[in-house]
Amino acid sequence: MPSPVNRHAPARVRFTRDELLAAADRLLPDVIAPGLDVLLCGINPGLWSAASGHHFARPGNRFWPALHRSGFTPRQLRPDEQHLLPGWGLGITNLAARATARADELTREELTAGGTLLRAKVAEYAPRWLAVLGVTAFRVAFGTQAAKVGPQDSDALLPTRLWILPNPSGLNAHYQLPALAAEFARLREAAGR
């Protein structure tokens, strides 16, 4: 069984290669609570995130800057401040629990199983909006090719509304930070925040 991470470990600036490789066996707990305004769903934890115990922790990931620039948070949070998100009606989960160096290392089966688990999590916690960060992973997990960035016409998660955001990884060259923040802002406005 994978070992859990220490949620309260201080943020680390650097990890050795061995520490990162060992992180592939760790689980990263959700930041979640009932009735959130927006539950943000990443594809899966990166090795840096698993090693640190904090979502979107790899230097160069644009999640935290985009979240702030879009107006979701009053200041740019550090990954080790993720516990503050529910106070702003926000949470974080992932489609797949397995930490990898790159999201494309996940199998189709892992993403499909993750979609099933995500539906159950949404039913249990009932966020107003679910925002999946990565259109390609969403298409695989939910078995649809029709999805595109933005709001989705889907009743699969009712009463939770569905929005697809671009993947904030630094590897996603299609969206630079200003465009990424603008997409996050569109969701914030739709969510009435």
Rank of each mutant, 00 (worst) to 15 (best):
S49P: 05
G60D: 05
N61V: 05
N61Q: 12
G71T: 12
G71L: 14
T73R: 02
P74C: 10
P74K: 02
L77P: 08
D80E: 14
E81D: 10
H83F: 14
L84M: 14
G89Q: 07
G89A: 08
G91H: 02
A96P: 07
A97N: 11
A99I: 03
T100E: 09
T100Q: 15
A101K: 07
A101W: 05
E105G: 09
L106S: 01
L106P: 00
T107M: 02
R108A: 12
E109L: 09
E110Q: 08
T116R: 15
L117M: 13
L117Y: 06
A120L: 13
A120I: 10
A123P: 04
A126S: 15
R128C: 12
W129P: 12
L130C: 11
A131Y: 02
V132L: 05
F138N: 01
F138A: 02
F142A: 01
T144V: 14
A146N: 13
A147E: 03
A147P: 02
K148W: 13
V149M: 06
G150A: 11
P151R: 06
Q152W: 00
S154Y: 02
D155P: 09
D155V: 14
L158V: 12
L162F: 13
P168S: 07
L171N: 15
L171G: 06
L171Q: 15
A173R: 15
A173K: 14
H174W: 05
L177W: 02
